[in-house]
Simulated assay, not measured.
Amino acid sequence: MTEQEFIPKPYKKTIESGSVTWESPSNIALVKYWGKKENQIPANPSISFTLSGCKTITRLSYSPKESPDDFSFEVFLEGEIKPDFKPKIETFFKRIVQYVPFIKDYHFKIETSNTFPHSSGIASSASGMSALALCLMSVEKELKGDKFETCFTQKASFLARLGSGSACRSIEGDLVVWGTHQEIENSSDLFGVKYPFEVHNNFKNYQDTILLVDKGEKQVSSTVGHGLMHNHPFAGERFKQAHENLAALINIFKTGNLEAFIDIVESEALTLHAMMMTSMPYFVLMKPNTLEIINKIWAFRKETDSKLCFTLDAGANVHLLYPEKETVLVSEFIKNELVAHCQNGQYICDQIGFGANKIV
Score class of each variant (00 low, 15 high):
1 M>C: 15
2 T>N: 10
2 T>D: 12
2 T>K: 15
2 T>C: 06
3 E>G: 01
4 Q>A: 11
6 F>S: 10
12 K>V: 05
14 T>W: 09
14 T>V: 09
18 G>M: 04
20 V>R: 01
20 V>D: 14
21 T>E: 04
24 S>Q: 03
29 A>T: 00
29 A>E: 03
30 L>V: 07
35 G>F: 05
37 K>V: 12
38 E>C: 02
39 N>A: 12
39 N>K: 15
41 I>W: 10
49 F>T: 01
50 T>R: 02
55 K>N: 06
55 K>S: 03
60 L>T: 03
63 S>I: 15
64 P>L: 03
66 E>N: 11
69 D>S: 15
75 V>F: 01
76 F>G: 12
80 E>F: 14
82 K>G: 11
85 F>E: 05
88 K>N: 11
90 E>H: 13
92 F>D: 01
94 K>D: 14
95 R>G: 05
98 Q>T: 13
99 Y>C: 14
99 Y>T: 11
99 Y>W: 08
110 I>F: 09
114 N>T: 06
117 P>K: 04
122 I>T: 11
123 A>H: 00
123 A>M: 04
134 L>F: 04
139 V>K: 00
140 E>W: 02
143 L>T: 06
144 K>V: 09
152 F>M: 09
159 L>V: 01
161 R>H: 10
164 S>D: 10
165 G>D: 14
167 A>D: 02
169 R>F: 04
169 R>Q: 06
176 V>E: 00
177 V>N: 02
179 G>Y: 11
182 Q>G: 08
184 I>H: 14
186 N>C: 01
188 S>Q: 10
190 L>E: 07
194 K>V: 15
201 N>H: 13
207 Q>M: 14
209 T>A: 13
210 I>N: 08
215 K>G: 15
216 G>S: 13
218 K>Q: 05
219 Q>C: 08
220 V>D: 07
220 V>Q: 10
221 S>L: 08
222 S>A: 09
227 G>S: 11
232 H>A: 12
242 A>I: 11
252 I>R: 01
254 K>S: 15
255 T>E: 13
256 G>Y: 07
262 I>D: 02
268 E>R: 01
270 L>V: 06
283 F>H: 06
284 V>Q: 08
286 M>I: 14
288 P>I: 03
305 D>N: 15
307 K>Y: 10
309 C>A: 08
312 L>D: 05
315 G>A: 03
315 G>Y: 01
327 T>P: 00
340 A>T: 00
342 C>E: 07
342 C>M: 05
344 N>H: 11
345 G>L: 10
346 Q>Y: 07
349 C>T: 11
354 F>V: 09
357 N>T: 15
